[in-house]
Design a binder for these strands. Structure first.
Lengths: 209, 209
DNA sequence: CGAGTGATTGACTTAGATCAATGACCGTGG
DNA sequence: CCACGGTCATTGATCTAAGTCAATCACTCG
């Protein structure tokens, strides 16, 4: 549990100025309750503090299409800052705490504080990068290659060790695999000597070229 | 071919001020040539005008990990604006034309022109959204549901028709399916009456709830 | 007219999803 | 302090949808 927290904490960091961070206000939602609705006027940017929120779009017949499932540490509705209404619904799927950063406050800050603006841009740009990379990873069909891709991108400076951020189950989700598939793949890679698996880590074996 | 062009043109639009757009300079690269290298000082933001560029990271043993493959209309190295060096290599994979927007010019513009800064943020925020949605889509395992997800998100206002942006083959790539799988899935959906397929379009059949 | 590409369909194979069972571990409450 | 419920980790068996290989037809372009 602590490990997951740690992993999530590092998800996005302190890009917003303290003044704004302080201005955020927490809200609680029970499963099924809305954070905001499509076409409603935008009030600001949300950070998920605890729980999960799904962003969905409803079609005429009431069918919902999930755009994104946000969990602790994620920001949602960044784009709402530049739009007058929300373009999808946000619904809590668990007991959830979110923090709301008022839109006008943020925009005003960006206008007079170029540094804050840049920090925001940088954060977004990094997210774009990271998302593109994840998407790239999903183009890899073989489970083993997908794991390799992940390991290659997440090893430490020495390039030999990857520290697992949370449970393997979570990792499986992140990789778009079932946990069984991941367990098996790791077991095979270890059997082949491609990796070693000390507790909480994965060590890459250089011999596997 | 024109259809592909059209699809790509609309990928990202005119978020940057004319002054900057004019300041962009075109460069040509042959397959295998570098646009920039990791750890080299950042000079600016690139727009792929023609061809494709892969962003890769090399590990100690020379193995390359693909982070992203950019094609016409894509911007690359947005994050480089806020970093002093590139964090990966960019290599042309075909005969490629890119347009370079100098970093200092952009940053200066953002500093004095809050509107331009906001436009950039908005563009990034939209990209984040769109990428998240694509990633969400890749979590859907069934080809049919993946197609449904795509159709639901890309139908016109009336909600009954989706205009295909390019070839079905391209769409297959976008959906992370082989073209055969896509053809078959569409054929089945048509056979089941879930969709109709006039030339260049797909019509959703409301009866399929 | 022939080359190149997209669209389509068939046959076959397989990797990964699914269903299931088990052992290890952990925190909790009696 | 220990038994119990919950979750993670792991492995087995089975199934199936999607990938792979391959062939055909339609179109377009020079």
């Amino acid at each position: 549990m602590r490990q997951i927290q740690a992993g999530q904490k590092r998800k996005r960091a302190g890009w917003l100025p303290q003044s704004i961070r302080d201005a955020g206000s927490d809200r609680t939602r029970k499963p099924g309750e809305f954070l905001f609705r499509r076409d409603a006027p935008t009030v600001g940017l949300y950070e998920v503090v605890k729980g999960t929120v799904k962003l969905v779009r409803l079609d005429a017949s009431g069918r919902e299409t999930v755009l994104y499932v946000a969990s602790a540490g994620d920001f949602i509705a960044e784009a709402s800052l530049f739009s007058s209404t929300y373009h999808c619904d946000a619904i809590a799927t668990t007991k959830t705490v979110v923090r709301l950063y008022p839109k006008n406050l943020l925009l005003r800050e960006f206008e007079r504080n170029a540094e804050a603006a840049q920090a925001f841009m940088a954060m977004l740009a990094e997210q774009v990068m990271s998302l593109r990379t994840k998407l790239e990873q999903r183009n890899i069909h073989s489970a083993r290659d997908r794991v390799r891709h992940y390991l290659a991108l997440n090893r430490d400076i020495a390039g030999r060790t990857v520290t697992l951020p949370g449970t393997l189950k979570d990792l499986a989700g992140e990789l778009g695999l079932t946990h069984e598939a991941l367990y098996r793949t790791l077991a095979e890679m270890a059997a082949d000597g491609e990796i070693e698996r000390p507790k909480g880590k994965i060590k890459l074996n250089p011999s596997a070229l």
